[in-house]
């Protein structure tokens, strides 16, 4: 749930989602769910010349499994908190595995 929890805080921030087919979409993160499916609004394709068919697309729903990277706005990430959250997640998983 860490990443879900994390991405929830990025809602309404601009992110760039890089898909596994190399398409990069920049847009406002509108919604994310526990599968890390992503809804983007006001999207623009980073390499628009390469993917002209996406020029007219305004918003997308991206299945979480096809996402390779999400480029984050560094300013809206609390690294220390994220570290802590990671520690907690790790501890939780460790205790679960036992």
């Amino acid at each position: 749930m860490l990443f879900f929890s994390f991405f929830k805080t990025l809602i309404d921030h601009e992110v760039t989602v890089e898909l596994k087919n190399d398409i990069q979409l920049r847009g406002t993160l509108k919604s994310v769910d526990q599968y890390l499916n992503i809804k983007l609004d006001d999207i623009s394709v980073v390499e628009e010349l390469k993917y002209p068919h996406l020029s007219s697309v305004k918003n997308v729903f991206i299945r979480g499994s096809v996402v390779r990277y999400v480029h984050l706005p560094a300013g809206s990430v609390d690294t220390q908190l994220l570290e802590d959250a990671t520690r907690r997640e790790a501890a939780a998983q460790q205790s679960k595995a036992k």
Partner: peptide, 14 residues
């Protein structure tokens, strides 16, 4: 908190 720590605390801080 355990499940949603980042979000909870982040929202709390912000």
């Amino acid at each position: 908190i355990a499940e949603d720590f980042y979000y909870q605390v982040y929202s709390h801080i912000r």
